[in-house]
């Protein structure tokens, strides 16, 4: 199984690659369209600023090919900044257009309030993921996980999908409940880092790959 990890200069991809290799997938870091089109699954990781990331994807001329493979049904996983880039727009340091693969926006913790939040931003650390009322984790990459299990987050912003039914899990930080993962057909997004979330994270990645294989 070939896994293309998109290398667009935003952060360290080695942990993601090590995790997929551990799961015995053939995982490469690439910015080549040919590799992306030829892969069985596409991973869009990344840390850093949304605006810079979109600029980098445009400079490498990858926006079109990513939207194409997403539309064609190829298994697609966005991690951290990657889930945010899936959205239509972000309000991180101004207003930026995203890949618009999932309708919705990216907002900052505490953005909707006047008062300075009393908790640290970014959220750095382990947090629980909860199921939503209207969606089961059966036959998703989260199947078999204990509700409220812990995964590792590093983020200051979170996604707000327009269609709430794509939300697969929610988490709480301070007084905010946010979408911590989403699943819409072949598109899977995690605000947390499955590659740094121990055995739980490896299980999520393994179950994502099983969807690819089937």
């Amino acid at each position: 199984m070939k896994v293309a990890i998109i290398d667009y200069g935003m952060g360290n991809l080695f942990s993601v690659q090590h995790a997929f290799k551990y799961l015995e997938a053939y995982a490469i870091q690439t910015s080549s369209k040919k590799d992306i089109l030829g892969a069985d699954a596409v991973i869009l990781p990344g840390v850093g600023a949304f605006g810079e990331a979109m600029k980098a994807l445009k400079r490498l001329d990858l926006v079109g090919v990513l939207k194409d493979v997403a539309a064609q049904g190829k298994p697609f996983l966005g991690i951290c900044l990657g889930i945010q880039l899936l959205m239509s727009e972000s309000f991180e340091f101004g207003h930026h257009e995203g890949l618009n693969i999932i309708e919705g926006s990216v907002v900052r913790f505490g953005q909707e309030r006047q008062k300075k939040p009393e908790y640290k931003i970014p959220e750095v650390g382990w947090n629980r993921i909860h199921a939503t009322l209207h969606r089961s984790w059966n036959s998703t990459p989260l199947r078999g996980l204990k509700k409220g299990t812990f995964v590792y987050f590093v983020h200051s912003l979170y996604v707000k999908p327009k269609d709430a039914s794509v939300t697969l899990s929610v988490s709480r930080y301070g007084d905010t409940e946010f979408c911590s993962s989403l699943l819409s057909d072949n598109i899977f997004g995690c605000q947390f880092h499955p590659e740094k979330s121990g055995t739980v994270g490896l299980k999520i990645l393994k179950q994502f790959l099983e969807r690819v294989a089937s």
């Binding site: 942990s15 090590h18 995790a19 590792y152 055995t199």
Partner: peptide
């Protein structure tokens, strides 16, 4: 370590340049 341990790994000690940081991250530090 990073090939078999899937929690965040921070590495420090004598890192002086951007290239030093890059080298350590490429080795598998987070």
């Amino acid at each position: 370590t990073s090939k078999e341990i899937f929690i965040p790994l921070t590495v420090g000690g004598g890192l002086r340049t951007l290239d030093d940081i890059k080298t350590v991250l490429r080795a598998g530090a987070d």
